[in-house]
Design a binder for these strands. Structure first.
Length: 270
DNA sequence: AATTCGTTCAACCGCCAAAGA
DNA sequence: GTCTTTGGCGGTTGAACGAAT
């Protein structure tokens, strides 16, 4: 355990750093439950914790508060993160506001460990158009499919629904507002509202997936800023280099069961 | 069994803006 | 108007752990 000294008036208070002990967690939890959040610096002192206010705040928000959601990021949450990140970039706290029980730190870690890993595997920058296209055309449809499969409804041919205008459906009057855009479909139970940054935003995982399977590229580009450009003909599995990718997408573990290039190629042939 | 390597995530750091003195 | 304190945010680090060799 590390300490750092800090002058406070006449007192030289030694601040603890590093991992929190069970006793510290108890002290903080009991104090916050009795007195509420806020005034973290004085809270730390009054609770008898030799920690900075910032450290206490972080510990409470990221680990101790009772409404935290534990466990793996679900496909619905993944889809929402991808969607919101495409809109807002690295605004982790803003994104976290739309995932109840998840912290900005958790989402940031998810992005860095999972999403950036895929970009690295594809040998492209996470902010590049190519990677955004992969997210939009491979990853998100796959997530939608998984969500639909898990919910028991009939799976939609994602490629067709995204790219064939005849099967696409424009949002209609009365559909649910999502940011500046509209989407059709039922609301999920974890719908949240935020009125930050002047424009009211409503986002739900279900509405995002519905919108994704029901809408066309132009509309998607309008609402997300993605420049959709599904290739006219996809390369065969053995010809990935024509897309500039030498990565073997058949290998297992590309976001669990994310589509292999062969899956996509086969769909193209149907 | 021991060692190396890769991944995950809790915690820290630095910067910035808002509030208060 | 200026300085100080406080809290919030995004970026980064490092310990812990599991998998691979």
């Amino acid at each position: 355990m590390e300490f750092n000294g800090r002058a406070r008036g006449e007192d030289e208070v030694e601040m603890r750093k590093g991992s929190w002990t069970v006793e510290e967690d108890l002290l903080l939890t009991n104090y916050v439950e009795a007195h509420g959040e806020g005034r973290w610096d004085s809270l730390a002192r009054e609770a008898g914790l030799k920690r900075t206010g910032k450290s206490c705040r972080l510990r409470w928000l990221n680990y101790l508060r009772p409404d935290l959601r534990r466990g793996n990021i679900t496909p619905e949450e993944q889809l929402l993160i991808l969607e919101l990140h495409s809109r807002w970039g690295n605004r982790w706290s803003k994104i976290a506001q739309h995932l109840p029980g998840r912290t900005d730190n958790e989402i940031k870690n998810y992005w860095r460990t999972r999403v950036q890993k895929h970009a690295k595997q594809l040998r492209c920058d996470v902010d590049s158009k190519r990677f955004k296209d992969v997210v939009r055309h491979l990853w998100m449809p796959r997530l939608v499919e998984r969500i639909r499969a898990a919910s028991g409804s009939s799976a939609v041919s994602t490629h067709q629904s995204v790219n064939d205008p005849s099967t696409c459906k424009r949002p209609e009057e009365g559909d649910v507002e999502v940011g500046e855009a509209k989407c059709a479909g039922p609301e999920s139970s974890n719908m949240v509202r935020s009125s930050s940054e002047s424009s009211e935003v409503q986002v739900s995982t279900a509405s995002v997936s519905d919108r994704f399977t029901n809408c066309d590229d132009a509309w998607f580009q309008e609402t997300t800023g993605f420049s959709a450009c599904w290739p006219e003909t996809l390369p065969s599995p053995g010809a990935c280099d024509s897309w500039g990718w030498s990565m073997d997408l058949d290998q297992s573990g590309w976001e669990e069961s994310l589509w292999s290039m062969e899956d996509i190629w086969l769909q193209q042939q149907i």
